[in-house]
Design a protein around this nucleic acid. Sequence first.
RNA 1: CGGGGAGUAGCACAGCCUGGUAGUGCACUCGCUUUGGGAGCGAGGGGUCGGAGGUUCGAAUCCUCUCUCCCCGACCA
Length: 443
Amino acid sequence: MKISQFFLPTLKEAPSEAQVISHQLMLRSGMIKQSSAGIYSWLPLGFKVLKKIEEIIRCEQDYIGGQEILMPTIQPADLWIESGRYEDYGQEMLRIKDRSNRDLLYGPTNEELITDIFRTHLKSYKDLPLLLYHIQWKFRDELRPRYGVMRGREFLMKDSYSFDLDMNQSRLTYQKNFLSYLRIFSKLGLKAVPVKANPGPIGGDLSHEFVILAPNGESDIFFDKKLLEFESISKDIFLDKNLVEKEYNKWAKCYAVTDDIHNEKEYNKLTTPENRVNSRAIEVGHVFYFGTKYSKSMGANLINNKGEQLPVHMGSYGIGVSRLVGAIIEYSHDDKGIIWPENVAPFSVGILNLKKGDEYCDKMSELVYQNLLIAGLEVLYDDTSERAGSKFANMDLIGLPYQVFIGSKSKDNGLFEIKERATNKRYFLKLESLINHLTEKFN
RNA sequence: CGGGGAGUAGCACAGCCUGGUAGUGCACUCGCUUUGGGAGCGAGGGGUCGGAGGUUCGAAUCCUCUCUCCCCGACCA
């Protein structure tokens, strides 16, 4: 993509409505436009990142046997009355009436819908286990939306729902999802910490939050530093349920809790002093085993191999996809702008033609651009007539992992200068090695 | 929902107290000079001052109502 053709409305100054850094950077880099409190339009740059995150999640969820579906945003009130949550959810739920005066709602979550799908179509233990997920917009009418997309009223969420015959099998499913989440966050370039959490109004007795450390986070957590040092989860682990359990236990037995259930005595017993960390954190995922809470109230039963009717055991697993965009920026930025982890960057490489109008630089920039495109990379080429300084500032702001400079230095030495955004390392390469170097990074 | 703050050009803000036909910087358009870290000079375009009502000869400015946005708290992925 050439910047001259790309809709990228960047700003030198942040709008005063934005207080936290990720919100400011998202507005300045032209990723989003606020529509009303907690509701945003996603512009091309932001939407690309959102889709990258989705795709990483999809890939990992499919790997552990998840099947993607898509449920509606607008749901009938009847199902919620049946589960008993129509009253419980309160003002956060956006209630709507259609032209026939039927009660509808904009879904804040999807347990009722999925349970309804399940009970309609699945009747036998032979149909299990089943893991369904979808990535869909939700709406919760928060009292006070804030922090940009990190706490919007409308937000994109991946939610999965698991169905198992009994608690033991459901726990294994829980463990698999737990490990899958660790893989997802690691691929997103984040060190996520799984903390034991209060399951809250959604119910259940086994629950973890996945948080990433950031000073602007809404949670306050206490945890064992070991959790930041474990190696990432290998795909092979999922092939053997003993390995799953072993790996899960390694993580789950470490002390890590939110402040509301923090216990100083236990903390001191289970951790060494140098490993104790207390930090603000942003919740980006949440996993629950909630057993038969919905299946009982909504009659989602199965017949086991003895012909008995039993309520199905369920779990649910959420990731705040749109929130993650803000959270990643909170986690990875500097005073110049965003520093995208390679897997979620909206483009892999930015090309800066520093002497637009100079025959050599124009020709070489175009050549590098074409070659990188042919190599299959996502490239943003700044072909505008802006001054060099403003191109540097703009490219640093939008945070692409690699920048290629073509200007008077290239003209003198016939080489191309690469800058790594995260480390600020710079080096000069010939065209061929530049293409190879960048291609290797992204394959 | 309780407490606080703010709505003036795309963005940041001044003007309001003390009423007199709306301004600055950035951005945008044109010209000249510049050109490796957000250039300089010159010339332009763009605002019924959030909305409604009132006071007044006259309202961005004073009064009333209202809408919206932001911050702190309680609540939440």
